[in-house]
Design a protein around this nucleic acid. Structure first.
Lengths: 172, 172
DNA sequence: GATGTTCAATTGACAAGACAACACGGCAAA
DNA sequence: TTTGCCGTGTTGTCTTGTCAATTGAACATC
């Protein structure tokens, strides 16, 4: 467990000159700090995805994720989707409302409790999903240009590990 | 250049059963698709960072990035920060306004053009930066628990490569 | 049978960031 | 000199996601 001190802080820091106080100051390196690169990369990816999906298909990045979710787990509830996608349940609720207004999704209420809903893609929603999936795969291939197969496996493994470590943090 | 077809789509897809139409449908795998893992990881990281920084220091994730930026490039302009952090210049402008209201930053106008400003951290801002930096490094160490030094270098390299590929996309 | 607890879902208030429009000074070309 | 363009910065508006409060049903306990 206690590998936390294995890396010296200097690994992630730069030492900068030119401040008005005449002193040198340390701060995070952009290029050597994984969390910085991670957030930059993800922000830019989400933003450019959102632009593409919105322009060509009229739905946002969030709604696209929801379509994927509903293919993966047909009949899932809003709460389940919230946990799986890691997004607030309020946002999920609104996303489903948007998608329903476009007739892309449908729901079935449980007999036992009218308010609990199981969500499915409509025929139209499935068709849209399949269409966007092609675009998403094409973009993904562009993003992975220059990656070896081993790189991809490493990348996935490291992202997963990073995420798992985050889950640990929130427990404490 | 044309390595784009080197990976079969199946590498990133799952094949799901249990749809109302009785058919099987393919969609993105969460665990094997880098862009999915990337956005999940980054969203969760940013969110939990924002909570920590806001709760303990009263500033958001965006404002923290701005503090780092001003240590890296003392005297930089809003436009420069926008390009470097990859965030809309409007958001930068508001962030600087918030930070100024808290006396964390100061500016100097150019003699030539009153409206053009060079931004610096105030003494108070630098102190806050140094304080938060400790927390950021501690969190980073937690996130990198289980990473080897080679893993970190790979992670940085792959994130950088992914980002560079995105830049290429937007040119076309 | 009454009461309290838990959980799904919705909704309103709010914050952050994207996008677009605009203001304004500098600068270059006519 | 004037005209038009460019680079900066500010601001309004919209979307999206978070947080918190609320509703309403099921279930458990007394």
């Amino acid at each position: 467990m206690d590998q936390k001190t294995q890396f010296p802080d200097s690994m992630f820091l730069v030492d900068v000159d030119g401040h008005p106080d005449g002193q040198r100051h340390k701060t995070l390196s952009f290029s050597r700090t994984p969390s910085v690169l991670l957030t930059f990369a993800a922000n830019r990816f989400t933003r450019s995805s959102a632009r593409v999906y919105m322009k060509d298909y009229g739905i946002g990045a969030m709604d696209w994720r929801m379509l994927v979710m509903l293919v993966r787990e047909p009949g899932c509830s809003a709460a389940r989707a919230s946990a799986a996608i890691g997004i607030d349940k309020g946002a999920i609720s609104r996303s489903l409302a948007r998608l329903e207004a476009k007739n892309l999704v449908e729901y079935e209420s449980l007999e036992s409790d009218e308010r609990r809903k199981k969500w499915f893609l409509s025929k139209k929603g499935m068709a849209l999903h399949d269409e966007i999936l092609e675009v998403a795969l094409a973009r993904l291939r562009v993003m992975l240009d220059g990656f070896s197969e081993q790189d991809i496996q490493d990348f996935n493994r490291l992202l997963q590990l990073f995420m798992d470590n985050m889950a640990k943090e929130s427990l404490s």
